Lab assay of single mutants.
Amino acid sequence: ELVLALYDYQEKSPREVTMKKGDILTLLNSTNKDWWKVEVNDRQGFVPASYVKKLD
């Protein structure tokens, strides 16, 4: 499943990933309501769920 980055996000820990507004990311896990695991540029990590939106 793919998600769209709604905002820029700068990683604050090694478990997170940086994304730019408009990026298309692969959603790996959305079981946590606050932090979703995504893959971007061959890196996996977490981003705030409120910063991304699922693409239909």
Rank of each mutant, 00 (worst) to 15 (best):
E1C: 15
E1Q: 15
E1R: 14
E1Y: 13
E1P: 13
E1N: 13
E1D: 11
L2E: 06
L2W: 14
L2K: 15
L2A: 07
L2R: 13
L2D: 04
L2H: 10
V3D: 00
V3Y: 13
V3A: 12
V3T: 03
V3E: 01
V3L: 14
V3S: 04
L4D: 00
L4A: 07
L4H: 05
L4K: 08
L4Y: 12
L4T: 08
L4G: 03
A5C: 12
A5W: 01
A5N: 00
A5G: 03
A5Q: 01
L6S: 03
L6G: 02
L6C: 07
L6K: 05
L6E: 04
Y7Q: 11
Y7G: 05
Y7S: 08
Y7L: 10
Y7W: 10
Y7R: 15
D8M: 03
D8A: 07
D8W: 04
D8T: 06
D8I: 02
Y9D: 00
Y9T: 00
Q10C: 11
Q10Y: 15
Q10R: 12
Q10V: 14
Q10W: 13
Q10I: 14
E11D: 05
E11L: 08
E11T: 08
E11I: 06
E11G: 15
K12V: 08
K12R: 14
S13P: 04
S13L: 09
S13G: 13
S13Q: 08
S13F: 07
P14T: 09
P14Y: 10
P14G: 09
P14N: 11
P14H: 10
R15C: 15
R15A: 12
E16I: 04
E16C: 07
E16D: 06
E16S: 07
E16L: 05
V17F: 15
V17P: 01
V17R: 02
V17C: 10
V17N: 03
V17W: 06
V17S: 02
V17A: 05
V17G: 02
T18N: 07
T18Y: 04
T18D: 03
T18A: 07
M19Y: 02
M19N: 00
M19W: 01
M19V: 09
K20D: 04
K20Q: 10
K20G: 04
K20N: 08
K20I: 08
K20L: 08
K20Y: 11
K20R: 14
K21Q: 09
K21Y: 04
K21I: 06
K21S: 08
K21F: 05
G22A: 03
G22P: 01
D23F: 05
D23L: 06
I24W: 05
L25G: 13
L25W: 03
L25E: 00
L25M: 13
L25P: 02
L25S: 02
L25V: 07
L25I: 07
T26H: 12
T26M: 14
L27R: 00
L27I: 06
L28N: 03
L28A: 03
L28F: 04
L28W: 06
L28K: 06
N29P: 03
N29S: 13
N29E: 15
N29L: 09
N29Y: 07
N29K: 07
N29V: 08
S30C: 11
S30R: 09
S30W: 10
S30Y: 08
S30G: 12
T31M: 10
T31Q: 13
T31W: 10
T31L: 10
N32P: 05
N32L: 09
N32M: 09
N32D: 14
N32R: 10
K33S: 12
K33D: 11
K33Q: 13
D34A: 11
D34N: 14
D34T: 14
D34V: 14
D34E: 12
D34F: 15
D34G: 08
W35P: 01
W35I: 02
W35K: 02
W35Y: 07
W35M: 06
W35E: 04
W36I: 05
W36K: 02
W36E: 00
K37D: 03
K37A: 08
K37P: 01
K37S: 07
K37I: 14
V38W: 00
V38N: 00
V38C: 05
V38I: 08
V38E: 00
V38T: 00
V38H: 00
E39I: 12
E39K: 12
E39H: 08
V40L: 15
V40Q: 15
V40W: 08
V40F: 15
V40H: 15
N41W: 12
N41R: 14
D42Y: 11
D42V: 07
D42M: 12
D42I: 06
D42W: 08
R43Q: 08
R43H: 07
R43S: 06
Q44P: 05
G45D: 01
G45H: 02
G45P: 00
G45K: 02
G45T: 02
G45C: 03
G45M: 05
F46I: 07
F46V: 07
F46T: 03
F46G: 01
F46M: 08
F46N: 04
F46Y: 15
V47L: 02
V47Q: 01
V47T: 02
V47S: 00
V47K: 00
P48D: 02
P48A: 02
P48Q: 02
P48W: 03
P48S: 02
A49P: 05
A49F: 03
A49I: 03
A49W: 03
A49K: 06
S50V: 09
S50E: 09
S50N: 12
S50Q: 11
Y51S: 09
Y51K: 07
Y51P: 01
Y51W: 06
Y51F: 13
V52I: 08
V52N: 00
V52K: 00
V52T: 04
V52Q: 00
K53C: 15
K53W: 10
K53P: 02
K53D: 07
K53R: 13
K53N: 06
K54S: 08
K54V: 12
K54N: 06
K54W: 08
K54Q: 08
L55V: 11
L55F: 10
L55H: 06
L55A: 05
D56M: 12
D56W: 11
